[in-house]
Computed example of a mutant assay.
Amino acid sequence: MLIALGGALAAFAFNVTHAAGWVDLEVYREGGAAVLQGASLYDLSVGRYWLQFTYSPFAAMLFTPLALVDMEIAVALWVLVSILALEAVIWILVGRVSVRNRGRRATHTLFIVIAALPLYPIVITLWNGQIGIILLLATVVDLTYGKEKWRGVITGIAAGIKLTPLIFIPYLLVTRRFRAALMVGLGFLGTVALGFLLLPADSRDYWGGTFFDTQRVVTAPETVFFNQSIRGMLLLMPGSWPTTPLWLALCAVVGAGGILVAARTAKKAGELAGITVCAIVGLLVSPVSWPHHWVWCVPLLVLWAYRARRVDTTLEKVGVGFLWFVFLLPGYITLATLLMYPSRAGTWLTLLMGSYVFSGLSTLLVLAVRFGRSDRRRRKSGSGDDYAAFDGQGRMA
């Protein structure tokens, strides 16, 4: 809580004295203001970067309270809520890996929050005023704590704000939780229906094709370096060749295979691990995945760190440390290069920043190989699975 308050006060002070940062939050505010004023959402052009509103009409309705306060107040409140959401996610993760003593759990949470705050996806989320950490918390709470009857509704509402949580529908279907998958779909369709009811013209524009127009999202040539999805990597590869067919083929393979790996991960390592892997699959196959979308690196790092502590192998501990550096340094190096030495941006920068994609693909591959080996050993010996460092509830066994 003290970290969140300190971050909010620092954000407020910085925003008062500097006209930089929180560009996405400004877009949210302008979207909310457009709803209140009856203006067209998708004709907006906000700030010095001429950013456009790329979210759904339902999201714009949720952003209307931001238009009722000054930008400085909005920044402080947004940073406060975002850091509190990060702390809540980590509190849940720590509790699910068997740290049950409240004092130890609070201590672990504090140190993990301190380690997570400098990570580039977290910093850029706070700096831009993005909603990713809040949606991360909503999804984690819904799919791990939600009542069985209503589980999936909040995830569906989150998908009505930002489409990426729809990846959990096939995951829930594969894991045979058909009711939860249905509730995600109903929650999402409810947001669409509400948008058509209250903002029919904007809804026709958005769902009529605006939502799939990536040119509204990628607004400057240099931003392509930050698109950390399979498609983003393909677009940066040298040469002139059709990338769309290859992207679709890779998405089919990674999407289908990744969902199966996520389902297997949930069975072996608990629900939190399963939804984390599923979210990574969504980031990889999405047309655009900015660094702030990769806030799912936090549960990935936390769950892997506790597993490495549990099995006590040097290789896994080194792997956790390496992954932490992947999500710490490349983003800052890429940003500094583009700001100070743009002429030096090239293939090396693509590979550096592409470490997010490579890490995601490697995670899926390692899990698939490990599960395959585990199955072969179990068939030969008739024994249990030595991978299961967590029980079915996501707690360490």
Rank of each mutant, 00 (worst) to 15 (best):
L68K: 10
G394E: 03
L135T: 11
C278A: 15
L80F: 15
V79I: 12
W348I: 00
A249V: 12
L349E: 02
V89I: 09
W324R: 04
N15E: 04
G321F: 01
G208Q: 07
I90W: 05
G321H: 04
Q215P: 00
Y206V: 05
V192M: 13
D24P: 06
S359F: 07
V369T: 12
I3F: 15
A33V: 00
R176T: 12
M1K: 13
L198W: 10
A13E: 14
P118W: 12
L236G: 14
I161E: 01
I3G: 10
V326A: 04
G190N: 12
A11L: 06
W78S: 03
S240V: 05
V318C: 06
I169G: 03
Y306T: 12
V81A: 14
D375Q: 14
A74Y: 02
I169F: 05
L93Y: 02
N101D: 15
W241H: 05
W241N: 03
L25D: 04
L62W: 06
L349N: 02
A256L: 15
L335R: 08
L272D: 03
A273Q: 13
I124C: 00
L163E: 02
N128W: 06
G146W: 07
L2Q: 15
L364M: 10
T314F: 11
Y387A: 13
P165C: 01
L349P: 01
I134C: 00
E30C: 09
R309K: 11
T243Q: 15
G187D: 06
E87Y: 05
L323Q: 09
N227F: 10
I169K: 02
R204P: 00
L25G: 08
I230E: 11
L339R: 13
T350D: 00
L352S: 01
V27G: 02
L137G: 08
I167D: 08
V46W: 01
L338Y: 08
P342L: 04
P200Q: 06
Y145N: 09
L301N: 07
I333F: 07
R379L: 13
P291G: 04
F196D: 08
A138T: 12
I134D: 00
V123D: 02
A116V: 10
G132M: 10
F53R: 06
F327Q: 05
Y49K: 11
L2C: 13
Y42F: 13
L349Y: 03
G7W: 10
M1R: 14
G31L: 07
L301M: 12
W150H: 10
R177T: 01
W22N: 06
V298Q: 09
E26D: 11
G382I: 08
L51F: 06
A180E: 15
T337R: 06
D43T: 11
I280K: 01
A106K: 11
S40D: 07
Y341W: 06
I133R: 10
S203G: 04
F14Q: 03
E222V: 11
L236I: 01
C251I: 07
V295N: 06
D386P: 15
A74K: 02
I275L: 14
I154K: 02
V311W: 04
A180L: 08
G392P: 00
A262G: 12
I133M: 15
T175Y: 10
V261W: 13
H292E: 06
T363Q: 08
M71E: 09
L323M: 14
R204N: 07
V326K: 06
M237E: 12
T144I: 02
A389S: 14
P245G: 07
Q130P: 07
G282H: 05
M61V: 10
I90H: 05
R231P: 03
